[in-house]
Amino acid sequence: MNRIVQFFHKTVSPEYFYWLSGKLIPWFIGIFVVVLAFGVWGAFTAPTDYQQGESYRIIFVHVPAAYMSMLIYVCMAVAGFIGLVWHIKLAEITAVASAPIGAAFTALALATGSLWGKPMWGTYWVWDARLTSELILLFLYIGVIALYNAIDDHRKAARAVAILALVGVVNIPIIHFSVEWWSTLHQPATLSKLDQPSMHPDMLRPLLIMIVACTIYFPGILFMRIRAMLLRQERRSRWVARLLGEEGT
């Protein structure tokens, strides 16, 4: 037990994590590129939809982006909770670093959704339940980023962000269901019926591969952001000076 605690403490120390993540990032990005290549190949060779024609192929970007937008919010809240409770600097930084990535995926999901809406519904934007809740999710992300930027002290800002993320995570189910009951025009969730998917396996396979690709992409890009933030916030500490000194010589 003591060993695990020791290992944990070592891993979350900024210096060790900087080193470890530097080793891990190439792996994440490498695997991501390979999986992405498979996914893209599958997306373009999947059979044409009998109703939606070729334009359904945007699903291979849209669904992973929407999935990531929610996954990252949960990651952000969990990291924020850990940071608040145990005062772990790395967890606080993780929460803050997740927000822009999540916002980007949310914006991507919204953009692809509205591009898909044009040929399908005949309009770029409808006030339907899932588009609206995705838009509100984007607002929540923007709030988190704006709050972090508004507070000068990094640690204080990170703790404030953690509280906001936790409040958001309590509210997301409420927002989701309220918007769901308010109006619905969107097709029912494609992937919710796990026992018997409503998609053809040839279409489902590339979609799942794309979701895996995005899930691997997230830690890779997250670690890059965390490393940059660690360097900036720890710039007065000895290990950064040593690191930069080594690279300088």
Partner: peptide, 23 residues
């Protein structure tokens, strides 16, 4: 509570709180 210490907290409060007012 999150913005009380800030100079220009007013507009930030609406950004933080309005999405939570949706339900």
């Amino acid at each position: 509570g999150l913005t009380v210490g800030l100079r220009r907290g007013g507009i930030l409060v609406s950004l933080l709180v309005l999405p939570l007012y949706v339900p």
